[in-house]
Structures are given as structure tokens and as C-alpha cells.
Design a protein around this nucleic acid. Sequence first.
DNA 1: GCAAAACCTGACCAGTTGGTCAAAATTATT
DNA 2: AATAATTTTGACCAACTGGTCAGGTTTTGC
Lengths: 225, 225
Amino acid sequence: MSETAAKEGPAREAEKEETGPGHIRQRNRTLILTAAEEIFAEQGYRGATTAAIAERAGLPKANVHYYFGTKEALYRAVLDDILTLWLGELDRLTEDSDPADALADYIRAKIVHSRERPLASRVYANEMIRGAKHTRDFLKQDLKSLVKTKSRVLESWVAQGKMEPVDPVHLFSIIWAATQHYADFEVQVSALVGRRQMTAKDYDEAAETIVRMVLRGCGLNYGKG
Amino acid sequence: MSETAAKEGPAREAEKEETGPGHIRQRNRTLILTAAEEIFAEQGYRGATTAAIAERAGLPKANVHYYFGTKEALYRAVLDDILTLWLGELDRLTEDSDPADALADYIRAKIVHSRERPLASRVYANEMIRGAKHTRDFLKQDLKSLVKTKSRVLESWVAQGKMEPVDPVHLFSIIWAATQHYADFEVQVSALVGRRQMTAKDYDEAAETIVRMVLRGCGLNYGKG
DNA sequence: GCAAAACCTGACCAGTTGGTCAAAATTATT
DNA sequence: AATAATTTTGACCAACTGGTCAGGTTTTGC
């Protein structure tokens, strides 16, 4: 994508008072990006107003436009942050790792993400639902080639006799759908488990259920299976 | 919910020219509801404008307000339609049916839904992502009690030794997530399979992959499993 | 055929929106 | 200390938004 994500500040002590050139820009951009992620997740693209984002960030509206220009540029920057966060996630799937361990680890990591950064997941889900107008290139290039790479890993696992053949696109789709569901549809799942908020145990049980279905679906052992 | 869904017109021949009292109301409400589902799915609640809905329906904006009053009432009517459509969906899960057959049928039916009415799914997904402000009661009452009823069916299957125990809430969550993903994230899946639009075969393969994982995850037979 | 009910709609309105700008305040550089 | 660069912000604007309404047209019931 285009905009650069929030970078680390100067590697100083963990002191509040940062100094040096650009530290104001750094702080305010982060404030705005965080606020924007919240508002975009809660209200959708069109529903989010720059005024609401500014208020949540504790800055005047004109300041938001000073740093990001337009609402659309800010939205792209938020998406950039999310995609950067998600991109390296598939690293644990390698040819010589154990399929069951690798897939289970990946699923559990994705569930942790759903618990810890549900807002990011919701912004992304919103973007997909509305047709991925700002993410077309990412999907057709970065994500597609990443999936292609990882498909070869799956094929090698199959060739090594480690697992049954499974269509990789559908496998990833199911894993992503199931794990992100706990972020995007949190309100529905919460209602069904009868709690105002899901507990850590709820998320763990969700992860184990998904792991169980995926592993057995791939002809791998899980529990009694 | 409150508003009534689109009802069947008088059971006449399949003629275009309907007559009789209320036929105008019937026709225009359907036109507006269909247009509204499209616009709400594409733009989200806030992004959808009554003007855009009216234009898509081929009617002046004031006409939309004549039939539905407010944008919010129209949105609730659209949601009503969707929920009514989805409510009777779980009927095939009964105590004396075969778990493998019943679950497989249900998953395949849900995938058909994702293919044939993706817009409805997207409106619902959007509503969940944004916190289900208009659907709280449905979630906590109708859906929760329905899931509770169906949980007893699952428990009876387990008691009959037909399948392994599985947490019903997570099982349904995974099924819904995986199947609806093909409607909500259609643009992403399309990009990954490398087609502008998914084919019927793509949907069938998706369904079979989900069925395979769910059945084996429940300790049921599927293919070589 | 006629009155009542239902339907239609252009014109209008008050509130909101993303975005601009110029002048002031602060921070960085020399 | 002086100058340059960056940051801050209230005031402003044109476009758009959901919603209203009065007066007209069509459909319905009898």
C-alpha cells in the first residue's frame, strides 16, 4: 500500500516525555490512527466522521487533516497498519514443520489476535464486505502470492505423506472465517454464550474447537480423532 | 422484530399485471426493500442514503419515506426480511435424524444461501460488526433460545452415541462463519481463486471442505476419514 | 359516477459533512 | 537571538443528508 505505518520512536528509555525532531508528528499520528481504527470499526467508513475521530484523539479536527490530508488517506493508513500486522502471520507454516503443530499454532495465534485487536479485524471485514475498493491491489497481488507460497507448503506436506490433500484456498478461508468471526461477530457469540463479554476461556475453547475440526479435516490427529 | 416482511401477493397466475387493493403498496414496498438491501450491503447503514435507495428502486425519495417513514425503520424492515429468511433454516436438525446427513445438509444449504443472497448476508454482517444495535433483542431472545433448542438435539445425538461431544455454540459459530464468509468476503475469495466471480463448482467445493471438517471434527465419517 | 382513501412528488429545510485557510503559536536550526 | 520550519486552530464553506409537506393524481369502494 502507500502510507507508512506508525514507526517506533527513538529507542530511548520508556519515558513519557519524548523529544527530538518529529516526535510531535509521531505522537499525533499514532493518536489519530488509534482513534480512527476505533471509529472506523464502530461506524464503518462512511459512518465515521473526521470530527468524531478528532474528538476521540483529543485533537481539533483541522489537525487530523493537517496530518493525513483526507479521510480516505487516513482510512488507507489504518488499513495499512492492519495489513502490516497480519502479513507476517503465516510464517510458522514451513515445509519441514509438523502440519498439526503448525496449523494449531497458527489458529491459536489468530484467535489471540481476534481477542486482542478486534477493532482491526472489524475494519478489515467492513472493507471486504463493501467490495475491497481500497484493497484490490493487496488482495490480487500480496495476499494472492502469499497464499500461493503457502499452498506449496501444504502440497509438500501432502507429498511427504504428512496429511491428506486439501484445497488450500478453502482451508485458509475456513481458518480465517472461523477465527475472525470471534472478533467481527463478538456481539453475537457473546449473546449466545450468555455473557456480556467472552472470557479468555471462551476464546481458548473456540480455538480448540477450530483446531480439532481443521486437523481432523486434514487427516491429522487431534484428541480421540 | 417489528415490521412485517414482504408477503406473497394474491396467488394468481404469474402475470405481471397484479390488481386489487394494496397491490401498489405491495409492489412498491418490495421494490424499495430490494433496493435498500443492495444499498445497505454495499455502503453500510450510514453510507446508504435514502436518495440512493430511491434511485435504485426507480422511485422518488419522498416515496420511500411515504412507505417506511424513516431510514432506520426501512433498515429494520430489511433486517426483518433477512432474519425471517434465516430463522427456519435449522429445521433439519432433529433428534432422530442422522447427524452426518443433517449437518451436511445444513452446511450445503447455508452455502447455497451465500451464493444466492450474498447481499442479505452482508447487511447482517455489517449489523453485527457495528455492535448489533438494532438486533440486540433478536440475539438475546430468538437466536439464543433457538440455539439452546438445537443444543439439546446435539446433546441427544451425543447421548445416543451418534457423535462425540462438541460445544454447540462454537460448532454453530464455525459453521456460520465458514459458510457466510463466502458471501461476506466474496471479493477476497474470488481474488484468491483467481476468478472475477466464483463458479458453482467453487461453492460446491467450499461446502464439501466445510462439511468434511465439521463432520470429522464431530467424530463422524466423511470420505477416507 | 362519485366521494373517500390511498398514492405521488417537487420543493423545501435545518443539521451535518469533509475539507480549506490564514494567522498565531510553538519548536528546530544556525 | 534570530530565523526558518513545523504545528495549531477557530472560523468558514459548499455539498449533502434525512425528513417534511402541501397540493395534486390515481385507485378503490359503493
